[in-house]
Amino acid sequence: MIRHLVLFKLNEGVRRDDPRVVEGVRAFERLGDVIDELRFWECAWNITDRPIAYDFAINSAVDDTDALRHYLEHPAHQEGVALWREFATWVMADYEI
């Protein structure tokens, strides 16, 4: 199984209640119900306020590299990524569990 983690940082001046951000969050919240290859899916806002903290996180899991590729290429995922590109940057890691 592969864990896929993503941490998002909103761009300077962008707030959580920005309509673009609200739309982006909704797009990602739906992915767990849309992409069959996802074995585990959660996403949420960070609840702490520290200088090194990111703003939003995705924690997910898929069975293998083929499932990860399908998830990454899935149109619903790509639509969400396109939205987030407008107002955030991110880092990610994939590792075997």
Results as ranks from 00 to 15, higher is better:
20 R>W: 07
14 V>Q: 03
31 L>K: 04
27 A>Y: 01
41 W>L: 01
28 F>N: 06
31 L>M: 10
29 E>Y: 06
39 R>K: 11
19 P>E: 06
28 F>V: 02
15 R>A: 10
24 G>V: 08
31 L>Y: 09
41 W>Y: 07
32 G>N: 05
37 E>W: 07
45 W>T: 14
29 E>C: 15
17 D>S: 09
28 F>W: 12
44 A>W: 14
32 G>C: 01
35 I>H: 05
19 P>C: 02
36 D>R: 13
34 V>Y: 08
45 W>S: 05
43 C>E: 05
22 V>P: 05
16 R>F: 06
43 C>D: 02
15 R>T: 15
32 G>K: 03
16 R>D: 07
31 L>S: 00
15 R>E: 15
19 P>D: 04
29 E>G: 10
26 R>Y: 09
40 F>L: 04
41 W>Q: 02
34 V>K: 11
18 D>W: 00
14 V>N: 03
24 G>Y: 06
15 R>Q: 13
30 R>L: 14
26 R>W: 11
40 F>A: 12
22 V>I: 07
35 I>D: 02
16 R>V: 09
44 A>I: 10
30 R>W: 04
38 L>I: 00
38 L>N: 01
26 R>V: 11
42 E>G: 13
25 V>F: 06
31 L>I: 06
31 L>Q: 00
28 F>C: 05
37 E>V: 11
39 R>E: 13
31 L>P: 00
16 R>M: 13
36 D>A: 15
21 V>I: 07
32 G>H: 09
39 R>H: 11
28 F>Q: 00
38 L>T: 03
15 R>M: 14
30 R>V: 04
29 E>T: 10
24 G>D: 03
19 P>M: 03
34 V>W: 05
35 I>M: 09
15 R>P: 04
45 W>C: 10
44 A>R: 11
26 R>I: 10
34 V>C: 13
36 D>I: 09
22 V>N: 08
17 D>P: 00
23 E>A: 15
39 R>G: 10
29 E>W: 07
25 V>Y: 02
42 E>C: 12
17 D>E: 08
18 D>P: 03
36 D>T: 12
17 D>A: 08
38 L>R: 03
27 A>L: 14
19 P>I: 08
27 A>P: 01
21 V>N: 01
23 E>K: 12
35 I>F: 13
25 V>P: 02
36 D>K: 13
27 A>D: 01
41 W>A: 00
17 D>I: 06
27 A>E: 02
21 V>M: 02
33 D>K: 15
17 D>W: 04
39 R>P: 06
23 E>L: 10
27 A>W: 01
43 C>M: 11
42 E>Q: 12
15 R>K: 15
38 L>K: 04
37 E>M: 06
29 E>M: 10
36 D>N: 13
42 E>W: 07
37 E>D: 15
36 D>Q: 13
44 A>K: 14
36 D>C: 07
41 W>K: 04
41 W>V: 00
18 D>N: 06
36 D>L: 09
40 F>W: 09
40 F>S: 11
45 W>Q: 14
18 D>M: 01
20 R>L: 14
16 R>K: 10
41 W>P: 02
38 L>F: 03
39 R>M: 11
27 A>R: 03
39 R>Q: 13
44 A>D: 10
42 E>F: 14
27 A>I: 03
33 D>R: 06
33 D>T: 15
37 E>L: 08
21 V>P: 01
34 V>M: 12
33 D>A: 15
44 A>P: 10
17 D>V: 05
35 I>S: 08
40 F>K: 12
20 R>M: 14
44 A>V: 12
38 L>C: 02
